[in-house]
Design a protein around this nucleic acid. Structure first.
Length: 830
RNA sequence: GCGCUAGUGGCGGAAUUGGUAUACGCGUAUGCCUUAGGAGCAUAUGCCCGUAAGGGAUUGGGGGUUCAAGUCCCUCCUAGCGCACCA
């Protein structure tokens, strides 16, 4: 190539040219294409999770987005209609906390950060359709977030309720269950406390079964993400049973997965927060119960959930009647029973549940065996193994278990006949709490009128604008509540004075539908056109971090299903394939600004160039794995590009195709070079499909090594030219700038990025000679070269007469000879 | 405690899914070029024995299946992730 490889000169030039050529833009489908997608090119919708605009990008980000960009460019070269949009998850706590810290309003800071990040995306050569850019914090977007809230409200999927909720004292807001990790705020790590507040929820539990079952329709999701979602949804089959309370009309309902052990229930335990506790408690126990409740409420989630903790509890003095045998059993309260799961009350079967067993032992409560257990077993611990039902009235003799014909099914049948209980299914999943007492989010579009009650904001009045001139510091209530201009409004029903809801929505609401907005990003009449969404959806490939395995990915699935049920979109699952990429570490820690171990994209690109960065982040390791950053490794990637530049000289003919003209007049070295090139096509294509991006790079490196060696012997020949053309095309998705530059310098027409992806010629992949490994008892002793068409007997004979093999055969005739076609001969001797 | 996933040279990693282990790169060594180089080029380079030719062992440990195991099975160890008093 002419001059020295100079990425700083080449890269911005091509980036501008690509923008001007609009090669990144995905056109809207035509009516004919929407009616019959096969009438147009195949669509390919791929996206990376949109980032929070923090401002600075480092090489960890570069890795994430390069993974997607390679895929985008590859599919584009395959002639598909690629949609690759990008946007900004701009609402939320990080932006607001940063604003509080340095006193710049998030509405001012956010666009600055967006501009800065966009510049860096372009600088790394990422191929996005910026015409479809979305920003969740701008009114043209959150208008539709609010609109969708109202649609959910109409269908009863958004509701307000007073409930004990997770409250982060530092961020001064409530959190969703999903945002509490081990009793701590997912964002800031502060211990979460419980508060009783009136809050807005989305009824995600109505979709629990579908969210669970449809995971089976997602075979191209990582199994561990599906598993995490299954665990989170936590489906549990069992029965609910009502226990009448002695001396009262009230009943306590319990959930159990083992209704067959009801005859062994010797006491009941309620969660301290259970609403019936006060009614059940006898006057003699009132003081002790109150004290225990106080103590429990002070405990953190962590202390409460600890498995190692010794059981505690107090009797209420009240009694319940076991409905299966009429026996009176004492009712206790204890913190090992959680109000948030099941009914907040359990029947205790100490003989067959280890927790109940420990509790019974500590407080000297009776233990009754109802599943036959090994002798003396119950003197040590509860028996949860197999056995026959005993002491259990109608169930006696039935094998214990959940299977067909076993005790659990029999017990449910019996309970339903008696009318004392019924089979049921419960979930661990709770409704999604979406209210936030924070400023930087989409206002919830609800109005409270003293006369007419709660009223949704009429569609015509959307968006409910987030006022920009309020003091946005949190203070235990939403900052919006302090702005009378915002709060005071008129009732859409009666026109009288009314107040606005002042909470804002969780930012996960914003991100639950943005992938739909991309299909029709600038529409101001509806959130998106159904026909556009139906054409592009589902997202063929979604790429993001494992940290969103539960939160975002489940919320987005819920939204998609809800919108499907409203007739707004046809698909029921938003993301066909999911890829979770690994993180980049440096000096042993995840690369992040707060740890001070980042390699900023700007610094890197300014020294070694975007192509070197892209090449290296892919080469570091498999995209799904975490990798450790190495400055020296990056140097190696850069070195490869200089070598590429020096090897492809003027005189290479991009139109030379000796492989398509037949092999007859080619010398062996040229055939060998073309074999390397065509094998590389097959390998790289396969690698891209299977996310083995690191071996794309090594395959190209090997190919260049072969080319350098060949050129040293033969110079630039038609075979070399063909190999050079193939290498440029294979590298184009990975290193788009240098390949475009060389392509043009060698006289290529148009952009290399819209050239067709090369096809491997099978005739040139096959080798004329094969290397056959010769083993004796599985150990390699030699390698022999045979013509490709040699038959089994010929190869075996050659192996047996091999000089290295002979010494082993002298006294030992082979007992068998195994031949693996084209690969090896294994001679088995005694 | 339960459930995944992984463990290959000095380092990052490869291995067409049971068939040549250590590709490719980094690092290191030697030489060349250079006023200089933390730049570039060439050659070598997993380990042990050997000057060499050559030989031997080897994919966390142990056992097994097979003509053949990094790959499959059992078991143990280590690390990471997820779940965890869920009735």
């Amino acid at each position: 190539m002419q001059g020295r490889y100079n990425p700083q000169e080449i890269e911005p030039r091509w980036q501008q040219w690509w923008q001007a050529q609009e090669i990144y833009f995905a056109p809207d489908p035509t009516a004919a294409e929407m009616a019959d997608p096969s009438s147009g090119p195949r669509k390919f919708y791929t996206m990376s999770m949109f980032p929070y605009p923090s401002g600075d990008l480092h090489m960890g980000h570069m890795r994430n987005y390069t993974i997607g960009d390679v895929l985008v460019r590859y599919h584009k070269m395959r002639g598909e209609r690629v949609l690759s949009p990008m946007g900004w998850d701009a609402f939320g706590l990080p932006a607001e906390n940063a604003a509080i810290k340095d006193g710049i309003h998030p509405a001012i800071r956010t666009p600055q950060n967006v501009a800065e990040m966009k510049r860096q995306f372009e600088k790394m050569g990422a191929m996005f359709d910026w015409r479809r850019e979305v920003n969740s914090s701008t009114p043209d977007y959150y208008k539709w977030t609010q609109w969708l809230f109202l649609k959910l409200y109409e269908r009863g999927l958004a509701y307000k309720r007073k409930a004990p909720v997770n409250w982060c004292p530092k961020d001064e807001t409530v959190l969703a269950n999903e945002q509490v990790v081990n009793g701590h705020c997912e964002r800031c790590g502060t211990q979460v406390i419980k508060r009783d507040l009136s809050q807005w929820f989305f009824k995600i539990t109505a979709y629990a079964d579908r969210l669970l079952n449809d995971l089976d329709k997602l075979p191209d999701w990582p199994e561990r993400v599906a598993t995490m979602q299954r665990n989170w949804i936590g489906r549990s089959e069992g029965a609910e049973v009502d226990f009448p309370i002695v001396g009262s009309d009230a009943q306590v309902r319990v959930f159990t997965t083992r209704p067959d052990t009801l005859w062994g229930a010797t006491f009941m335990v309620l969660a301290p927060e259970h609403p019936l506790v006060d009614a059940i408690t006898s006057s003699g126990q009132r003081e002790a119960v109150q004290a225990y409740k106080q103590e429990a409420s002070k405990q953190t989630e962590i202390e409460r959930m600890s498995t190692v903790k010794e059981k505690t509890g107090v009797p209420t003095g009240g009694y319940a009647i076991n409905p299966v045998n009429g026996q009176q059993i004492p009712i206790w309260i204890a913190d090992y029973v959680l109000m948030g799961y099941g009914t907040g009350a359990i029947m205790a079967v100490p003989a067959h549940d280890q927790r109940d067993y420990e509790f019974a032992n500590k407080f000297s409560l009776p233990i009754i065996e109802v599943v036959s257990s090994p002798e003396a077993k119950l003197e040590i611990e509860a028996w949860a193994g197999e056995g026959k039902m005993v002491n259990s009235g109608p169930l006696n003799g039935i094998p214990a278990g959940k299977g067909e014909g076993q005790s659990v099914k029999a017990a449910i049948k019996w309970l339903e006949e008696q009318g004392t209980g019924r089979g049921t299914v419960i979930f661990r999943l709770r409704d999604w709490l979406i209210s936030r007492q924070r400023y930087w989010g989409a206002p919830i579009p609800i109005i409270y009128c003293d006369a007419c009650g709660m009223q949704p904001v009429p569609e015509a009045d959307l968006p409910v604008l987030l006022p920009l001139d309020v003091a946005f510091k949190p203070g235990g209530e939403s900052p919006l509540a302090r702005d009378p201009n915002f709060v005071n409004t008129t009732c859409p029903q009666c026109g009288g004075a009314a107040r606005r809801e002042t909470d804002t929505m969780d930012t996960f609401v914003d991100s639950s539908w943005y992938f739909l907005r991309y299909t029709d990003a600038k529409n101001d009449g509806t959130p998106f056109r159904r026909d556009y969404a139906d054409y592009w959806m589902a997202v063929d490939q979604y790429i993001g971090g494992i940290e969103h395995a539960i939160l975002h990915l489940m919320y987005a699935r819920f939204f998609t299903k809800a919108l499907h049920d409203m007739g707004m979109v046809s698909i029921e699952e938003p993301f066909q394939r999911l890829f979770t990429q690994g993180m980049v570490y440096k000096d042993g820690a995840k690369m992040s600004k707060s740890k001070g171990n980042v390699v900023p994209i700007d610094n890197f690109v300014d020294t070694l160039g975007a192509d070197a960065g892209r090449l290296y982040v892919l080469f570091m390791g498999p995209p799904a794995d975490d990798v450790e950053w190495s400055d020296q490794g990056a140097q190696g990637a850069s070195r490869f590009l200089y070598r590429l530049w020096a090897t492809l000289e003027q005189g290479v003919d991009l139109k030379a195709r000796p492989s398509s003209e037949g092999a007859t007049n080619l010398d062996n070295d040229s055939k060998a070079l073309l074999r390397v090139a065509h094998r590389a096509i097959a390998k790289v294509s396969d690698n891209i499909e299977r996310y083995h991006y690191n071996t794309i790079v090594s395959t190209c490196m090997e190919m260049l090594n072969s080319m350098v060696e060949y050129k040293g012997k033969h110079g630039i020949t038609p075979a070399f030219s063909e190999a050079a053309t193939i290498l440029l095309l294979l590298l184009a998705p990975v290193t788009p700038h240098i390949t475009e530059e060389i392509w043009h310098q060698l006289g290529g027409e148009g952009s290399i990025h819209v050239r067709p992806w090369p096809a491997a010629n099978p005739e040139f992949i096959a080798a004329p000679e094969l290397t056959i490994v010769v083993q004796v008892n599985g150990k390699v002793r030699d390698r022999i070269t045979v013509p490709a068409e040699a038959d089994e007997d010929t190869v075996k004979a050659a192996a047996l007469s091999n000089a290295k093999v002979q010494p082993y055969l002298n006294s030992n005739p082979p007992t068998s000879v195994v031949y693996v076609a084209g690969k090896l001969v294994n001679i088995v001797i005694k």
